[in-house]
Amino acid sequence: MNETSLDEFVAEKGQSEAARLLGVTPPAIYKAIAARRHIRVLELSAGVFQASELRPFPSQATKLQVA
């Protein structure tokens, strides 16, 4: 199994092919890279890829409440 960042995967495969292999649209790939999301792509077998994202928890900033 081979694991790479989304940036490296797109550089190797091209944006359209990367999107097709991951089952998303090319604009979704562009937006994920532009937003600097931490997405890793894992090659499960020849030609089968899976992407996962590491996100902080909670994913949205919590606002402090002043009493």
Rank of each mutant, 00 (worst) to 15 (best):
M1R: 10
M1G: 15
N2R: 13
E3K: 08
E3M: 11
E3C: 12
T4G: 06
S5E: 00
D7L: 06
E8M: 00
E8V: 00
F9I: 01
F9Q: 01
F9H: 01
V10Q: 01
V10G: 03
V10W: 02
A11Y: 07
E12Q: 10
K13Q: 13
G14I: 03
G14V: 03
Q15N: 11
Q15W: 02
Q15H: 04
S16W: 05
S16T: 12
S16R: 11
E17P: 01
E17W: 02
A18I: 02
A19H: 05
R20Y: 03
L21A: 08
L21Y: 00
L22R: 04
G23N: 04
G23C: 10
A28N: 11
A28K: 08
I29T: 02
I29Q: 04
I29S: 02
I33R: 13
A34Q: 10
A34T: 05
A34I: 04
A35D: 08
R36Q: 15
R37T: 03
R37P: 02
R37W: 02
H38T: 11
H38Y: 12
H38P: 04
H38R: 10
I39Y: 03
I39L: 07
R40T: 09
R40H: 10
L42T: 14
L44S: 12
L44Y: 02
L44E: 07
S45G: 06
S45A: 12
G47Y: 01
F49D: 00
Q50K: 10
S52A: 15
S52N: 12
E53P: 09
E53K: 10
L54Y: 08
P56K: 12
F57S: 14
P58Y: 07
Q60V: 06
Q60R: 02
A61T: 13
L64F: 08
L64C: 09
L64T: 08
L64H: 05
Q65C: 10
Q65Y: 07
Q65K: 06
V66M: 12
V66H: 11
A67S: 12
A67P: 14
A67F: 12
A67V: 11
